[in-house]
């Protein structure tokens, strides 16, 4: 009975994701196009000037970087508790995507920091904890690749991912707990956002577009891994 359960779900996933994927791609293209169009038609900010447009790619990248880690952590917990292979695959598939978005958050932030703060990089609580996120992603990928046995690799990296999740609240609250050069929270704050609607809309649309894009990439990577495992099972059946 459990083996049937394990076999049925990847198949269901392939069917469902095959139907959903084109819609997800269309949603990504639409929200991103709208976000870019609005983003380049805003007036410059009263202080940041035109560098405010860097925010429209910086904030979404940073958001997806953290969301991807959250998703990876949830999948890791399911992998450890339910021992479901699809959860292991999902956790592993999210890591390189999350790492790229984290790197983009760092690079675009640096390109904003140089003209606005006067520095490419500072070692404040927010920037340091966000750099740590990239290192955690890279260590997770290395750990997952280093262990030959698939199941053991999944267990070990799930443990690592769950412990590393403690960095997420540190990133989020760093700007409240400590003095940082990085500005405080503009959107999810008491008393409502401090961003004028003309900037909030492109920011929101780009964040939505980036989120959809993550799910497109993640879904395809999960599908690839399911196909790879099917191929491996076929080979083992032939050999055995």
């Amino acid at each position: 009975m459990p083996s049937l359960f394990e076999f049925a779900n990847p198949k269901k996933f392939m069917d469902l994701s095959g139907v959903l994927l084109p819609w997800l791609v269309a949603a990504t293209a639409l929200t991103m196009a709208a976000g870019l169009l609005l983003g380049f038609s805003t007036p410059p900010d009263y202080q940041q000037g035109d560098t405010v447009r860097i925010m429209f790619v910086h904030v979404p990248a940073a958001w997806v970087a953290m969301m991807a880690y959250g998703v990876m952590t949830v999948a890791s917990i399911f992998g450890l508790v339910n021992r479901h292979p699809l959860a292991d695959i999902a956790a592993r598939a999210a890591a390189p995507i999350g790492a790229v978005f984290t790197a983009l958050g760092l690079i675009t932030g640096s390109l904003w920091g140089r003209p606005m703060w006067g520095a490419w990089w500072v070692w404040d609580g927010r920037l340091t904890s966000f750099l740590l996120l990239l290192l955690i992603y890279l260590a997770y990928i290395a750990l997952n690749d280093a262990i030959e046995n698939e199941t053991r690799a999944a267990r070990a990296s799930a443990v690592f991912a769950i412990v590393g999740a403690v960095n997420l609240p540190i990133i989020e609250f760093s700007v409240q707990w400590w003095t940082t050069l990085h500005q405080g929270e503009s959107i999810l704050r008491k008393g409502g956002p401090t961003i004028a609607p003309v900037f909030l809309w492109p920011l929101f649309l780009m964040a939505l577009g980036y989120t959809f894009l993550f799910f497109v990439f993640w879904t395809i990577r999960i599908r690839s891994e399911i196909l790879n495992r099917r191929a491996r099972t076929l080979l083992e059946m032939r050999a055995g």
Binding site: P43, W117, L181, Q183, I195, A196
Partner: peptide
């Protein structure tokens, strides 16, 4: 030795200001 500007969390177009 070095002076850095700290940005607040306000984003507004000049007209609104």
């Amino acid at each position: 030795d070095q002076v850095l500007a700290k940005h607040d969390e306000k984003y507004m177009p000049p007209e609104v200001v």
